[in-house]
Design a protein around this nucleic acid. Structure first.
Length: 105
DNA sequence: GTTCTGACCTGAA
DNA sequence: ATTCAGGCCAGAA
């Protein structure tokens, strides 16, 4: 069953993201070898265990906003990102600056 | 089998 | 900038 394999690929890709950098669900799915499976990436992160050391907080939606509601998890995500030096312009993060991988120019 | 739902994305109006 | 519709993938009812 390749499902597990893809999930592992997603974990690996996510683990490569350095502190202070963020990526979108779509990019994460693409790095996991599944372009277009952004929702799938979200479901994987949702089922992620709490004791996981993966930087799940570095994943935002394409708009640069937190896809978690204003719950405790959302607060935690924002807190951790700010601790890493990510600056929020309002409720949004500039992906052209903090995006990962770096903007291909 | 169909239908809904969700830590989503893109393009068009 | 905001709203809408269509497309994506997977799991639950």
């Amino acid at each position: 069953m390749p499902e597990n394999n893809h999930r592992t690929a997603l974990y690996t890709a996510l683990a490569q993201v350095p502190p202070g950098r963020v990526l979108t669900y779509g990019q994460l799915a693409r790095l996991a070898g599944r372009p277009g499976a952004a929702r799938w990436a979200g479901s994987v992160l949702r089922q992620l265990p709490e004791h996981s050391q993966l930087p799940w907080h570095r994943v935002l939606n394409a708009a640069g906003r937190l896809s978690l509601g204003p719950g405790s998890a959302g607060q935690l995500q924002r807190q951790r990102l700010q601790d890493e030096g990510v600056i929020f312009t309002g409720e949004r993060v500039d992906l052209t600056i903090y995006g990962w991988p770096p903007q291909a120019v």
